[in-house]
């Protein structure tokens, strides 16, 4: 036993460090529930900002919902937007300070229900911002009500017998809608349920920020996420449930990867 401790102490030396949290992430204990995907995504954002060396340029816009307090955890300037309005807030920040790196961070209720207009129009204008979209198919903060992305049959506190399309309509694939818009430069759907998925998601977030530097349109990253409290499953069970149920409806991968595709647009022939 003494031998093992000795060996561990030998390994735990600064020169052997492979991973430690980003210095942009503070020591506050996150308010999220155990296993919540928000924590992972926010850590990735902090890492990307640190690795790109853009702390001084970065301005984040947080939503209303579980991630309302995202501003507590990453050491950059933030603006807290009203429910659904983050893309409008981010639009103005970027337009007035084009040299900044501006991103919005929203959940499904914020981005795809109350803020649908702001979301679609910001992308449609091709705002040079990064939009991060955390889709866990439920309203976490308010206690597990139906979200626009709630799956058919999924039980929530406002669909206690499962989402019924006759009453509640269909789960909104807003990322697919966004991919259709000429203003979108990069649209991808990722997840953070395994180490490999986390590494892919980080690459996607990095790419989104790189695209902002090119000024060629909106970079939109959806993260299919879990909400173990809302789903009433353990974090591990949530990941399994997500793989089985969320991924078939919200398949992972890039939906669009090109610069603004406005070259083929119809323009009127005379004024």
């Amino acid at each position: 036993m003494a031998c093992v401790i000795e060996k561990i102490n030998e390994i735990i030396a600064p020169e052997n460090l492979v991973y430690a949290k980003s210095p942009l992430t503070n020591d506050d204990i996150m308010h999220y529930c155990p296993g919540c995907s928000h924590g992972v995504v926010q850590r990735l954002i902090a890492e990307v900002i640190e690795e790109m060396g853009i702390q001084e340029q970065s301005i984040g816009v947080t939503p209303v919902g579980c991630s309302v307090f995202a501003y507590k955890y990453i050491d950059i300037d933030w603006q807290e937007a009203a429910h659904g309005r983050a893309p409008a807030v981010a639009t103005a920040i970027k337009r007035l300070m084009p040299e900044k790196m501006v991103f919005s961070y929203q959940g499904d209720g914020d981005l795809a229900a109350i803020g649908t207009a702001e979301t679609l129009h910001a992308v449609n204008r091709g705002e040079n911002i990064v939009m991060l979209f955390i889709n866990n198919a439920i309203y976490g903060m308010t206690g597990g009500q139906m979200a626009p992305t709630t799956l058919v049959g999924q039980v929530t506190s406002t669909t206690p017998f499962g989402r019924n399309v006759d009453i509640n309509g269909y789960p909104l694939k807003i990322t697919d809608l966004i991919a259709q818009l000429p203003g979108a430069a990069y649209v991808t759907r990722q997840s953070v349920h395994t180490a490999a998925a986390v590494r892919r998601a980080k690459k996607a977030i990095r790419k989104a920020f790189e695209i902002q530097r090119l000024n060629c349109g909106t970079a939109f990253v959806e993260i299919v996420a879990t909400c173990s409290s809302g789903w009433k499953l353990s974090p591990v069970e949530s990941n399994k449930w997500m793989e089985e149920n969320m991924f078939p409806h919200y398949p992972l991968g890039d939906l669009k990867d090109s610069k603004r595709a406005d070259s083929g647009l119809y323009r009127i022939k005379s004024k």
Binding site: A81, R85, V89, A92, R95, M97, A117, H121
Partner: peptide
């Protein structure tokens, strides 16, 4: 000066919020 026609009054006022938060005269 930036001039932008927003998609609604709701978006306009929140754009004002974003700009004002950056210390700009909006």
């Amino acid at each position: 000066m930036v001039v932008l026609q927003a998609e609604s009054e709701i978006a306009s006022i929140h754009m004002v919020y974003g700009g004002a938060g950056a210390g700009k005269r909006v």
